[in-house]
Amino acid sequence: MCLQRYKITGYSMAPSLREGARVVTCVHWPLQLGDVVICRLPASGRETVKRLVRISGDDYYLEGDNLAMSTDSRHFGPLSKTDILSRVLFQYFPVFQCVV
């Protein structure tokens, strides 16, 4: 299935995505800078949501929108493209909004 649903936990993507928000993501969506993506952290295997802020070759740098409360590429370095699972298309709860 190309589309997936995710529930967001935590505050690192506030104010774009708040704790408890529900989103729909697409696996086969071409990635661009600024996209909000679901990625798998190689160290822990956990799925997390971050924004794609820089691409350098096969290095994908991700950051949370809420920099003060985010653990991201500033700490764990870049990820490879295979670690990025899908792109967030829109939030449908608590209110509908496109995620860009």
């Binding site: 649903r5 529930k7 967001i8 936990t9 690192s12 704790e19 997390t48 971050k50 653990t71």
Partner: peptide, 15 residues
Amino acid sequence: MNKFLKMHTAEAHCD
């Protein structure tokens, strides 16, 4: 939507 799209969890925590 609940029927055909399984819900996953994406963390946005500060570790």
